[in-house]
Write a protein that binds this DNA or RNA. Sequence first.
DNA 1: TGACGTAGCTAAATCCATTTAGCATCAGTC
DNA 2: GACTGATGCTAAATGGATTTAGCTACGTCA
Lengths: 364, 364
Amino acid sequence: MRQTFGVPSKSGSKPAVTIYEIAEHVGMSPATVSSVLANRHVERRIAADTVLLIREAAAELGYVPNMAGRRLRAHKSATRQFDLAILTSFQAPLPLVGQALHALQRAVDVQTTKDTRYAVAIEMFHAGRLREKPGVLDADRYHGVIITNTLPEDDQFLAQAKLPYPVVILGRRIPGYCCVLEAPDFVGRHSAEVLLEAGCREPAVLHGRLLTHTTSDRLGAFIRTVRERTGREPAVLVSDGLQPPQGAAAVEAFFVQGGKLDGLFAVTDSLAIGAYQTLKRSGRQIPHDVAVVGVGDNEMAEYFDPPLTTVAGANDAMVAEAVPLLFRMLRGERDAPREVLVVPPVFERESTLKRKAEQRGERG
Amino acid sequence: MRQTFGVPSKSGSKPAVTIYEIAEHVGMSPATVSSVLANRHVERRIAADTVLLIREAAAELGYVPNMAGRRLRAHKSATRQFDLAILTSFQAPLPLVGQALHALQRAVDVQTTKDTRYAVAIEMFHAGRLREKPGVLDADRYHGVIITNTLPEDDQFLAQAKLPYPVVILGRRIPGYCCVLEAPDFVGRHSAEVLLEAGCREPAVLHGRLLTHTTSDRLGAFIRTVRERTGREPAVLVSDGLQPPQGAAAVEAFFVQGGKLDGLFAVTDSLAIGAYQTLKRSGRQIPHDVAVVGVGDNEMAEYFDPPLTTVAGANDAMVAEAVPLLFRMLRGERDAPREVLVVPPVFERESTLKRKAEQRGERG
DNA sequence: TGACGTAGCTAAATCCATTTAGCATCAGTC
DNA sequence: GACTGATGCTAAATGGATTTAGCTACGTCA
């Protein structure tokens, strides 16, 4: 029979129930209670009545086993255990986090020996409220973590908090931490250049209301580059969220208000796919009427119709830097670099290329 | 200064280093070592020299703090802590797992009180090798878990293992466990019906080489339904993996070998998007030449071109059942149901609808 | 000289669950 | 009646880190 746990009916703030209370309650020793709750009652020859009695008492009192106690006791002293985690906000693009976990797990699989074990997990916090996540400030949860997809509030919290375990920050720069991030400005600048080279006169940018460090950097660099090259301001479309419907709605709203664009940079994949829908529905051809540039962090971009030009997607490369960095910190190396900049690969695909070809055709 | 941890250079199987060894090594008491390693040396008035000495010894000996010990000590006896996890294979569609975590976190946010805390995480195992995941069989890691995306090998392992904590299985039926799953046969049967109603004479099915319980069920029901209704066997295309390129390759290989189809059921989203690519590239129109049905577990399906008809996507609904079920088990309720069947919603979109219209047009 | 303070450290208790060795008790056997 | 064996339970040690109360040695001041 599987073990089950109870929760107290009245939620006063009495101390949590331990096996000692149960023992006292049923008038037996903690040893007996432990044997029963660990399902060892058969080999320990505990009477069937006693088993029932203890199980009932546990349920009634709302016993919740203390895993720390169990683990401490179960600990084989020859193995050292590392608890690693990837901390990300719920609003994150999961595939990217998945990549990171994958890379971390690969590293861990290699490093695992008979006396060194690793546990890796993804844990999530509400964007902007990392400080509220239970355990971030405690030294008793993680041996090391990779933190990603934070908002400025989180960055601010981190900057002043100094977590009591090794940390690698993925995707932004926070003073006092080891950071791995996109080379600043690269994505925004390059996507602006791709659109301009494709002959766009009215480039625009689409982003979500919540700006992370990364998306904010992309946005800023895009605007600056367009301004420098054309002397004009690009249109800025803001969507309520990062999901396709919201991207589609933002583009639609822009057109309804009489906005014009012939080139669009979407700061995330999912916004690009939303934009595609509105552009097509409104009869605009990609890239003939509107060229589109997005980011290629997942493998979908190539399968858009037409395939999407991507000027980002450094996630792979960033993760490849971040994981070894974390291990160096775990090993206690002092010379770990404070900052690693990664230049993302660029894939020009039909969503801009055809138009470039047309441009050349017209000119030539 | 951040605390750092070392790993021994020689990996003999000596017992892991504790603060007692460090204490002995530097000729001081464990109390002093602890104060230093917990960065409490200032308020504990430890001499600067001593601090350095201890830090060096810790690094040299390869000290790795035992989190179980720390947590046990740090434990505030008024709070009970639940450690919950979602266990999934690496090969899983992450967005679905994300949905599950989201739902779990929402439940946890509600249940959290000043004396009940929850920690939730996603942990991954290599598909088919759940048994090798450290800690699954131990009673000292989780208070409860949701397991999903297992392969038959994993199911078999689970069926005989009886994990020592409450478990909810998502997406398949395993004897002895609480399971939440798609109503059997529904997806396969219904997608076959949709294709046949759209007038397809040569329906086919596309799946990955690795079949989970869910995909295997979809496949089987599809084949059976087609056989029953038409008396013929549907073509079965097998791709090497679940990613779009592999789906595209499988469909291409089928055509190269002279295969014919006018309706396709892809058992996952990502295979459908790959199939789209090959179909379009080979000049086939969707749904005029080939109608396509897929699953709609993520929000992308609506943004395919043309929008994809989906006959699945019960993930939301399944998660909505699984989470409360897990909490009932945590609470020790005996009457928790063993099995919850969820009927997925069906969305007919252009990838089949247009063709149905054409059918009616031709007939009428 | 003695009272008092302080810097620097330690002994011992504590957190919770598990396990081993062993103590009673009782039934059955020669 | 002494012995054996099984049954049902308990005392006490253990795992690793932290913290509190307190000890020692040295310096300061009246």
